[in-house]
Design a protein around this nucleic acid. Sequence first.
RNA 1: GACCCCAUCGUCUAGCCAGGUCUAGGACAUCAGGUUUUCAUCCUGAAGACAGGGGUUCAAAUCCCCUUGGGGUCACCA
Length: 594
Amino acid sequence: MSQTNPTIVRTRFAPSPSGPLHVGGARTALFCWAYAKAHDGSFILRIEDTDQKRSSDAACQALMHDLRWLGIDWDEGPEFDGIGGGDFGPYFCSKRLDIYHKYIDQLIDEGKAYRAFETPQELDAARSDAKRQKHNYRYDRSALKLDQATIQAYLDEGRPYVVRFTLPNDEPILVRDEVRGEVTVDPKEMDDFVILKADGYPTYHFAVVIDDESMNITHIIRGQEHLNNTAKHVLLQDALGFRRPVFAHLSLIFNPDGSKMSKREKAKAARKAASAFLQSKPTEDVEAWLSHLTSFDMKIGDLVRNSQQRHLHLYQEVEHLFSPTDFRSFLDGDTDEPGIAHLIADDLGVDLPEIDVQDFRVSGFLPQVLVNYLALLGWSPGNDVEKFDHAFLIEHFDLDRIIKSHAKFDRDKLLAFNLDAIQAMSPKQFHDLWYAHCREYHPKFVEKLSPERFDMLAAANQSRSKTLDDTVKSSQFFIMADDAIEYEQTKAVRKALCNGDPSGYDHLAAIKPLLADLTDWTKDAIEPVVDKYSQEHANGKLGKVAQPLRIAVSGSTVSPAIFETLAILGREAVVNRITRCLANRQQFLDTSNA
RNA sequence: GACCCCAUCGUCUAGCCAGGUCUAGGACAUCAGGUUUUCAUCCUGAAGACAGGGGUUCAAAUCCCCUUGGGGUCACCA
């Protein structure tokens, strides 16, 4: 874009602190940030907390935490973790009420806005009437016909009112959008919209216009859901004599099935899991399960530390426990409360779809990978370039390569990118990251493994970790008690243990003393012993011996490379587990034949 | 329903604005083969798209129109 005047680029991300940061919001923030940085400008974070009922400080903190985790730092905005501040504050709408009121008064004085006294109920009724008669609802401007004496009388008696903006004329409204081109909106599609709510707070439309002007915002990059609203903003800017910033509206991100990515996804998945679980249960069991669920202590802090409930959100400040009634109405689909969805999912051991930034964090995605992927979802640098970092974005990002069509979120591709990034790390980098992830979300891993063993496990897992979390899940047997290992009743396990002559069990019995006698318990010492054994007794087929060993120590056919696995577990655990596996031989044969 | 936006492999996209070099390129996923002590990797290969119809033009994935399909907005939410 040609910048003819030397205006300094200023972009802003203006989220509402009413919930966790959604990937869609994160992408908007990323694009605002990238554009500002690419043009030597400033990126501003402003908290749009004009909805008193839904805003919370905890959500705001979580939001900023997520932004910083992604590496999206703001030049101006709320102070947080060493950044923020600035000369155009306050950066919370709720602290700018006097500014809004000044402009509201101005508009009323100039006859460009007026007070209206209808109640929300009256308006709802009028709206549903209009809907029934199949025509579009527009506010009928009856408050405009009120004479001054009546208005004064209403004000004197303290009747609540809103302020509406008077639509100026019938001229089509032209919005220039950097990604969509010129969009015209017929004012007949709008009505005298509310700019000040009865509680004295401005609506989004009003606050955003005032704030963007007073904070010198030059470029407004936001989701396409605001495209229609932009006409209102333009009208307001004209009425107030404000400058008109550059607009760029981003298309939305969807689920692979084409549905909108929203918190409802979590509720849907949790309900599905619950109904599968409840299917065959008698009524009393359902009751018992519900009361079991309500017994969780929902205090923040504990929640996040508790690995069983690691998905529960930082932002949630739940004062009271959910009641069985809450759960029931959730299961009936009357509410989509994500807290309940996570409780159910954790209890049932199912994964919920990741839709919020923090979901991706607990799932073990790397922030730079998420940023890379998100940038690619709606923007393309061209030339088949796909992998890039923050610095590349700062260098190359611009509005002209923003994609106009909607995109579906492809989790498999994200996963592939994450694996690539993990494999590209140095062993030390991976170790440190994996350690931090375990300490945060799986503290038992850090507590139960000695540092030496933890280090070995990290090294053994790096190249097979699609996320920081998936190898933690598949490595549970490393921290289990020897007698807690359960042998999977699967075809693969049976085959490895029972088939052939000698069978896997026979090999285990034969190799056990060789391992028990090993004095130097390292990968390099174990390997030749097992290799030599398989040369002599299994036609050199290492798998014939390795698989039974793997099952004996882990309970399943999946683990890191076998010699590393044995080395990490230690001789005592390995021998114990082989002994126990052999002792279970008859029982295993009986039950697996049954 | 009204208005607005969008349309290239299953998915994300390059190519489109400045029409020919496009028998449409890449990535993820899929399939086949190979490597490997399991899983995951890794290597090689294959299959796979210009939504449909009209124009404009010597020439259209590229420009225009219509249809169809998808999405968004229509709050004292943002």
